[in-house]
Design a protein around this nucleic acid. Structure first.
Lengths: 250, 250
DNA sequence: CTCGCAATGTTCGCTGGCGCACTGACGGCT
DNA sequence: AGCCGTCAGTGCGCCAGCGAACATTGCGAG
């Protein structure tokens, strides 16, 4: 398969189990702004993105929203089912066009029951997700807009697998929970340093390494969490805080 | 057993399984500032508080800390083990003196393997924890100090099972990730409304209902999540956002 | 009784981000 | 051509919370 057209959560499964799993899936397109799950509603399908990404969004009573996580080809939407809960914890919206493997909730339950290796992988994924949520909390609290923007752009890049992104200031503002003007300022600062270029919804990362430096530690930590999730968290006692590659683009 | 001396996560287990489970536990005291787990380190024991509570804390590179969750008698410390991961995701410190049932990690793994009902309960708990983390993220981002303080006091009350709390401004500041001065201001505002009284580390909630009104929605939502966790999340499609009682004190 | 310390009260200037409103630029559609 | 919608730039007043001091109070140890 072409690099990037694979879901890395499934890629780590043994060949045979993966074939059976994928055979029960549909290949679907992720269209911009598709709502794949709503907070508190039943989960009908699980999604394993192979390209593009999905935002997980918390909505408060006053209507304020905050992105609490994104799901790219390193993860899945609907992991609550692995916890035997069929209610979606958050709103899930496609924010980066792409494709995904989709499976119905009942079929997914059956696969989980039959496939121990799958269960194990997914349990790890849930664990990593929890760490990410906690890290995001602190990030949102303490880090400044410019650093968070840099982090978010890098994460988008990793999901998209390309340095060219289609993200408007307006959208980035809503995901980071700040004003659009705040993004404009931060983006200009990054552009002034030659790290990105942008125009009318197209953002190009021109210096990924530089952007990492301006981004907050949460980017590296996140990568490291996923990297850990891929190998043995069971036995090791890792120091757990060193950044590492989640897979820079082509 | 005396009300409040029970861990509610275990209380929901069938009588026989619970007896076997508790038989493998030690009864231990939770002493103030005991560190029960460190971020990235091995989990040696799991804890089921029966009184008091444990803070989960994320630490950033610059040393800034933020409490991302608390564990009282509705939960457990070490749930990562149910995900087959033995590395603690966060720092866990006793912030409210009390008692807990403690079990070694290997024994806990065995119990999980043998006891399907236990696994089911714990999976639910992990799910609820994830929702809480996400909610906290948004709360920390958008809600003001006074409302967050009110929420935190109510949560402490529920854990302690009493309206008299022992919490200094300094401590509350660190958990909410704000300055001590911010707590002083917020606490004075709450006291002026006659909702609490405090002096030198002793805080008394004098009007719990009033405090709920001043607190942010996250308090009610949290309670509702736990309440849901106790009954069937599997089949229902709940609207999921109505507050309800998590158990006001005696 | 007194010293020391923990806990709380208070002040002052600062700043990051907010809310709002308006402007300008580009591009697709009719 | 003209229009409209999307996207970005700018200015202005505002405020919650920050950071850093310093003052006060009450309690326990010696």
């Amino acid at each position: 398969m072409v690099v990037g057209s694979e879901n890395r959560l499934l890629a780590a499964l043994p060949r045979e189990g993966r074939r059976r799993f994928v055979a029960s899936c549909d290949h679907v397109e992720l269209k911009l702004h598709d709502i794949l799950a709503e907070a508190g509603e039943q989960i009908h399908h699980v999604y394993f993105p192979t390209a593009g990404f999905i935002s997980l969004i918390v909505t408060l009573d006053n209507g304020a929203q905050l992105e609490v996580g994104i799901i790219g080809n390193e993860g899945m939407l609907g992991s609550a089912l692995t916890l035997d809960v069929s209610v979606s914890p958050q709103l899930a919206i496609v924010q980066g066009v792409g494709t995904a493997l989709r499976m119905s909730a009942p079929a997914f339950r059956r696969q989980c029951q039959q496939n121990a290796k799958l269960r194990e992988r997914l349990a790890r994924y849930v664990y990593v997700s929890m760490r990410q949520l906690a890290q995001m909390s602190a990030c949102t609290r303490y880090h400044q807009v410019e650093a968070r923007l840099a982090r978010r752009l890098l994460m988008s890049r990793d999901c998209a697998g390309a340095n060219e992104l289609h993200l408007t200031h307006e959208f980035l503002a809503s995901t980071l929970g700040v004003r659009r003007v705040g993004i404009t300022q931060a983006a200009r600062a990054l552009q002034a340093r030659g790290l990105i270029r942008y125009s009318r919804g197209d953002i190009t990362i021109t210096d990924g390494a530089g952007l990492e430096i301006r981004s907050c530690e949460c980017y590296g930590r996140g990568n490291h969490m996923y990297a850990q999730g891929l190998d043995s968290l069971r036995t090791r006692s890792n120091s757990c805080m060193r950044p590492s590659a989640r897979g820079p683009p082509t």
